[in-house]
Design a protein around this nucleic acid. Structure first.
Lengths: 335, 335
DNA sequence: TGTTAAATTGTAATCGATTACAATTTGATG
DNA sequence: CATCAAATTGTAATCGATTACAATTTAACA
């Protein structure tokens, strides 16, 4: 391994001069700079990131906890994080937690072991134990999407799920729908509560009765969409409008509707959340809520960077705007 | 920060004893072990990963270069890599190169700066320059999928693209198709060549004339599928069977076919490669080649681990088996 | 040319661990 | 109880950088 000592000998200077040449070139004469750079090239020298980090106490790395890397929605967020990270000289360490809480604390503790400077949480389960809660207070941390605990000790960048849900409900009500159903994802979460109460508020205003049995589902997956739709279609009173809590669920729901020989949107309207790429190219294209995922990621990274550099934060939580994309999977209620 | 010194003082022993207690507990008496562990708990001490790594010269981290994190096919590979990595005590650093060659060398050079121990390449563009080629020879590196250079200096885990392509062609020929078209992805690659020659070989055997103008496309994206299909449908002689070089392209192609009011598979059969999750839930479900992505990732990580630990490799290259999944997007040729 | 301040370079401590080697303690044995 | 080997613990060097401080060189000015 070529280290700084070897280079310093090659150039006939001290290690300090080599270090300075590379980190603050203005501090050395043009002549020595030449000599050193020549030696660096000759030896093919690259400073050890490890050694630099151990000395400076900064890794310029941040950890992102992702519940599911396969979900393209999270990937859009991560795209935003990476962009902002790159601009600020941070490297992103992606950690797929698979919803496994042990993995989550393992990865989260990387910040404690000097492996990363901060943490972005896309899930909503960490911190789940008291130990973790203590941990969360001592490390720079930002949540993008939501967090479950009421007393937020760290900044949160999220969507206005309540308003987004109302927007979808209004859209469907305006098409004359009165028989609603919902296929939900993970139940224990703020997202879940906000979206449900958004829907309920619109239905109450419109004086539409909502059958609580029309809430089914338990995870953000295609399979859950299929199973949820199957359950809904078994009911005596078939719904005419189904709100899916993400696009994967909607894809599954649409698949099951087609399988049973029904038509979208003629028989049933289906809407989703997230606007993943493929949703625009389904048959029919899916009506959904476009979340500003990229922007959320960007903003989350900006906040985290400020936290790490102990820049005082102006606001601790932010809500970004959404957009209702009306496509062909929703239409007039059947007569 | 609580460091080993503080703990050693708390426990009334030397730093060496603390280190030994944590790394080789058998070397210390039960009594001192107790004392030290108590102090560790009390101080909430965690050894600095940075310091440990700089001393041992091992980071137990590997870098994975991914052309596009949003593609679920790559994510399946990464799932396999992560599994094998975890079993061997490695952490995976995911790098989305976006096809940007500068980013690629940047990330690749992490291995040179003691930031990672090895590299897995999912793309086929690195190493592209001579500098990189030299780099590739000095660091532990494995390619999962393919590499472009002929003289392979490192192990490759891939699919038998030639055979897979033949399998699709046979499937379509058996349905009576004689007018073929192809929508390709990235052109400059071994994958491209192998798949094309696989198709050609079957058509030659079956004495079917292949019109070279029926090859369109330039990238592995939904948009490219749409545009490619648009071009194909403009031709005077419409194809009855379209082979897409990945499922994203197929999704775009199907979307365009539907948009023009044609039916799948009645008018045109569409097939893909990869078997991404959503392909089974499209309308109609997509006939495709299932690549053992997870297994490819696993195997790649196993090979890399052996390289890093300088275990002699038994084989340098491996081809894993594929499976043709016949679904509803392909059927008898129209009469 | 001599004096002094500024710019450049070198020496050595430091970051937080690990580990070779030395020192000490323990325990077995006669 | 003395002796010696084995087990345990401590001291200090080390990994590869950075940086405070000291030493030296350069430049400016009288």
């Amino acid at each position: 391994m070529t280290n700084i000592k070897k280079v310093s000998e090659l150039a006939g200077v001290s290690t300090a001069t080599v270090s300075r040449t590379l980190k603050m070139p203005d501090m050395v004469t043009a002549r020595t700079r030449e000599k050193v750079m020549q030696a660096v090239r000759e030896a093919g020298y690259r400073p050890s990131w490890l050694a630099t980090s151990v000395k400076t106490g900064r890794t310029n790395t941040i950890v992102v906890l992702v519940p599911n890397l396969v979900n393209p929605f999270f990937m859009r967020i991560i795209g935003g994080i990476e962009q902002a990270a790159q601009e600020r000289g941070f490297t992103v360490l992606l950690c797929d937690t698979q919803g496994d809480s042990k993995r989550e604390s393992d990865y989260a503790s990387m910040v404690l072991t000097n492996r990363a400077d901060g943490l972005i949480q896309l899930d909503h389960s960490f911190p789940f134990s008291d130990d973790d809660a203590k941990l969360a207070e001592t490390i720079p941390m930002v949540s993008v999407c939501e967090r479950i605990h009421a007393e937020k000790k760290y900044p949160v960048v999220s969507l206005d799920n309540y308003a987004a849900s109302r927007s979808l409900a209004h859209h469907l009500v305006s098409y004359g729908h009165r028989k609603f159903a919902v296929i939900v994802g993970q139940v224990v979460s703020q997202i879940h509560k906000d979206r449900l109460s958004g829907l309920r508020s619109v239905l109450a205003e419109e004086e539409i009765v909502f059958d609580e049995n029309m809430i089914v589902g338990e995870s953000y997956s295609i399979e859950n969409g299929i199973e949820g739709m199957r359950q809904l279609l078994e009911k005596t009173q078939r719904p005419t409008a189904v709100i899916c809590f993400n696009d994967d669920i909607a894809i599954g729901a649409m698949h099951e509707i087609h399988r049973q020989g029904l038509k979208i949107p003629d028989d049933i309207s289906v809407v989703g959340f997230d606007n993943v790429k493929v949703s625009a190219f389904l048959n029919p294209p899916l009506t959904t809520i476009d979340q500003p995922a990229y922007e959320m990621g960007r903003r989350g990274m900006e906040l985290l960077s400020d936290l790490i550099n102990t820049v005082p934060l102006t606001r601790s939580s932010e809500m970004l705007p959404f957009q209702l994309l009306e496509r062909k999977s929703s239409g007039p209620a059947p007569v």
